[in-house]
Design a protein around this nucleic acid. Structure first.
Lengths: 277, 277
DNA sequence: CCAAAAGTGTTGGTTGTACACCCATGT
DNA sequence: ACATGGGTGTACAACCAACACTTTTGG
């Protein structure tokens, strides 16, 4: 992992090292960032998954002084790095997943947009490095926002050495997000809600094999309204996208049929299949 | 108009002035751009209109050396300028329109993305200022792309003093666009095609009063397929968005009814009214 | 009168919606 | 047996698509 691959999350790592010679390192580090990445531009990835009948989003935490920020994972874009590669890199670092499907859904870039306001209360910066970092993240930033849908069961969210921590946030914890990252999440959910009817979105959020009640519950939590179970069943099966692959006996009532998406029917995140919800 | 408001189109203006003392001015100008705008970031506006039963897009042209580039209008973002304000500014400069509705639909930012390749053939740069400009626009750029829909009849595309020229391009002239600007246009049209069924898009592209055959023709050219006229008519009128306001006698056969969008029914570009095409 | 283009009517198949009902399991 | 939740059937309304038909203009 070179400095070139650095992203905002790494900063927290450095922040936890004592001052002294390290101060120089931070200068070097920030200097390198400045030279090898695009200034004032960041990529943020809303990584959504579905677990225990709830949508969840990956959040990262990092500390500065005695303050702590909860953010949507993000990072910088290398001068010689494609935007898409930057997104893949960030998602890989957070989840271990390769070749994820994702979509750009918004750009956040108000003139006043920085972490400065967020950190106003923090007058007790503990070190010069804190001050350096504060200056750094107080710049105005343009965030390119991407949505990635992942299968919760395949992900190990071990915080890497670069984060203080990484964890799943359920949507009712969105208010914990710093700056406008709550708005970013909200915007992502609106985007998903709008795209859902035209896309095999669910194939990215569910495990390989799933039941129709699970799929229904997922769709309901995305759309924010309940649907008629029998009608939903017919509508989905009519698309011909699913095939029955067994029976799920884990429930405590009548077993549900297990389905999977037919191979090749869910290779893109946003095509135009028209589920027709 | 201050340097702070500058955008890529202005460059052509400067380019047309002889070298000498002007060379210093260009240095100053580029230096100012560097300080007062966000580096390597630009905003591009696909400004679409509908005229004579065809979709058209605003293009700008500027010269460098003996080369000439046709581009989608764009510009830089001031350090203290909101992204949305930059879009408004660029659209205003091109069309004279204020308070346009628009939507961000894509970001273009490949690592190799610059005008350098486009200008490789041009070895006969006429002046030092050309060379300066070439260097400037050979940087890697991230383009935030916005779609704006406008009413052709209200627009005066006089090239301002800042452009060599500005003109309407019909879609079959898209290949004239430099670099990846043809892709940007294509992406905008795909976006429009996808959003159309959910949005009162037409209210932005048509004059206040229009006939249903006109609207049908517009929809057909966006979707790229023909539709059944009687069914289209019923579907549209059923929405309750239109009201009849007269009769159009300009045709050479049976006159068509004139309609307009009911007030307040077309204030947003992209809401969720579901035309249901 | 005829051609051209706008507008109306009709019909049959498809889809959406609401709800009653039956079925398979755990307790 | 009963509660729970999964799966099936049915009936009506709304909608879509195709196409025949009527109306209003210009030539």
């Amino acid at each position: 992992m070179s400095h070139f691959d650095s992203n905002i999350c790494y900063i927290s790592d450095i922040d936890h090292v004592a001052t002294g010679k390290m101060l120089e390192n931070i200068r070097d580090y920030l200097g390198t960032l400045e030279k090898e990445t695009i200034a004032q531009l960041s990529v943020n990835c809303v990584i959504l998954a579905y677990h225990e009948r709830k949508l969840r989003v990956v959040a990262n935490e990092f500390s500065i002084g005695k303050g702590k920020l909860v953010v949507i994972p993000g990072g910088y874009v290398g001068q010689k790095e494609d935007l898409e590669d930057a997104v893949q890199r960030i998602v890989r670092e957070c989840t271990g997943l390769e070749n994820i499907l994702f979509r750009q859904f918004a750009v956040f870039g108000k003139a006043s947009r920085s972490f400065a306001g967020e950190l106003e209360g923090i007058t007790d910066l503990e070190s010069d490095s804190d001050q350096l970092l504060l200056n750094w993240i107080s710049e105005r930033f343009i965030s390119l926002c991407y949505l990635a849908l992942v299968d919760y069961s395949t992900i190990d969210l071990q915080p890497t050495g670069f984060y203080d921590s990484a964890r799943w946030l359920s949507l009712d914890q969105a208010h914990e997000l710093a700056m406008d990252h709550g708005d970013i999440l909200h915007s992502a959910l609106e985007f998903l809600k709008k795209e859902l009817p035209h896309t095999p979105v669910a194939s990215n959020l569910l495990p390989d094999r799933f039941t129709l009640p699970d799929l229904l519950s997922l769709v309901e939590s995305i759309l924010g309204r309940t649907m008629d179970r029998p009608n939903f069943r017919r509508k989905i099966l009519r698309t011909g996208l699913l095939e029955k692959v067994g029976i799920d006996n884990s429930g405590k009532s009548r077993p549900a049929d297990l389905y999977r998406f037919k191979h090749g029917k869910h290779t893109t995140l946003m095509d135009d299949l028209k589920y027709g919800f």
